[in-house]
Each structure stands twice: as C-alpha cells, then as structure tokens.
Amino acid sequence: MSVSVLVADDHPMFRAGMVTVLQDLDDIEVVGQAANGREAVELVARMAPDVVLMDLRMPEVGGLEATARIKVEHPDTAVIVLTMDSDDDSIFAALRAGARGYLLKESDGLDIERAINGVARGEAVFGAGIAERVLTLFSQGRSSAVSPFPELTPRELEMLELIAGGLDNPTIARRLFLSEKTVRNRVSAILTKLHARSRAEMVALARDAGLGGPAS
C-alpha cells in the first residue's frame, strides 16, 4: 500500500520538482500541494495524507505553526520538515512543534523516500548530520532554550506559557505587573500570530509544544 504525501513549499519550481521525484516512486502517492502553511493545514483536513513534506519559511502561516496545528488537529499525519535551514534553533523548534523528521533540501530522492516511509511507520527520521546534532544538543540540554514559536516576542512567549499553565487574564496581569487591558490586547496578538481560532486552541498548541506542562 502506498504512502500518501502532501508537499508544502512556497517555491513553485522546487515544489514541482519534488512532486516529480515523488511521482516516480512506486510506494508513494502525491495527493496535494500547498504554497503556504495555511493551505497545508486546510489540505490535511480534507485529504488526511500520511505524511506532509513541510518547508519552514512560507508566507501567511509558516511551517512551524502549520506543523504544530497539524499535530494537534490531525495527529495521524506525520510531518517531515524539508528545508534549507540547518541551524540548531530551527531543528529544535521543528521538533517541539511536532515534526517527526528533519531533512535538508540537498537530500537526494532516496533519502527522502526512506524518510517518508520511516515516519509513516511511526519512526523519527533525520537527515545526514542532523541526528548526531540532535543527540548532542539534547544531551547538553539545549532543547529547553529553543522557542517553539519564534514569531512571538519574548514577552508574548512568557504570557503564552502562563496561559498554557491555566492562568486567567487577571492572574496574568498581577503576575506580570500589567493592566488587564494590556493582557487582553497581547492575548489577541498571540491568537493572531498563532492563527488560533480560540483561547482553547491556543492552549492546545502551546501545551503540545511543551509549554505550560504536558499536553492533555
């Protein structure tokens, strides 16, 4: 049985080339393409692919946000980040958002095929040179220092941590020495940046990324 794949990348030529590579593989079926993270989330809801190949840097909704939403809303779909970004912060932000694999765009077709089949079986798959760095950085405790939501300011991330911990706006206002109006405005800004439809969805995204305690 073939593995169904959605390709999400904002560069049309790269996306078309990747689709061509995947279509030549007998055990993989491309079921859709997305030009940004918003489209990726919408198509996953409609098509329920086994795997998403996700670029990190896309307009409207980035790959990190889309990955976090897919993990919360469609946990049976595995996400492999396929990007040019090889820095440690990008790797750990992707993992904390819920990615099951991380490959660089320089990977060849065979590596991508192996990764797709691997995550479809429930494995975690990393490209050449990535796995060793993940192990090393985890052993150094670096993962806790990486923000899963780089689009948020440090103050917004601090507030999201408190929200995910179950605190209401008045309590957050007292904790951070802010007015309740300021807290409400910043909560609205966080909702917009995370493209969350409600406070509950925002909490789910935050907890799934490791903020505020374990996800429920």
Score class of each variant (00 low, 15 high):
Asp55Phe: 01
Ala78Leu: 03
Gly101Arg: 02
Gly37Gln: 00
Asp26Gly: 11
Ile28Glu: 06
Arg96Pro: 07
Asp89Thr: 11
Glu39Ala: 11
Glu60Gly: 09
Val52Ala: 04
His74Trp: 06
Thr83Ser: 07
Val52Trp: 01
Leu95Ser: 00
Val52Cys: 03
Ser90Tyr: 06
Pro59Tyr: 09
Leu25Phe: 12
Ala66Ile: 03
Glu60His: 15
Leu25Arg: 13
Thr20His: 14
Val51Gln: 05
Asp88His: 08
Gly101Asp: 06
Ala68Trp: 00
Lys71Ala: 07
Thr20Phe: 11
Gly32Val: 08
Ala40Lys: 02
Met84Trp: 13
Ala78Thr: 01
Lys105Cys: 09
Ser86Ala: 12
Glu39Phe: 11
Glu60Phe: 15
Ala40Met: 08
Asp24Leu: 15
Pro59Gly: 10
Ser107Ala: 15
Ile28Cys: 07
Ala78Tyr: 02
Ala93Phe: 07
Leu56Met: 09
Leu43Met: 14
Arg38Cys: 10
Gly32Trp: 07
Val41Trp: 06
Lys71Glu: 05
Thr20Glu: 14
Ser107Arg: 09
Glu65Pro: 02
Val81Met: 05
Arg100Phe: 09
Ile28Ala: 08
Asp26Pro: 13
Leu22Ala: 13
Gly101His: 04
Ala94Leu: 09
Leu64Ser: 02
Leu82Val: 10
Glu73Ser: 10
Pro75Ala: 09
Arg46Ile: 11
Ala48His: 13
Gly62Asn: 12
Leu82Gln: 03
Phe92Ser: 01
Ala48Thr: 13
Ala97Lys: 00
Pro49Cys: 08
Leu103Gly: 04
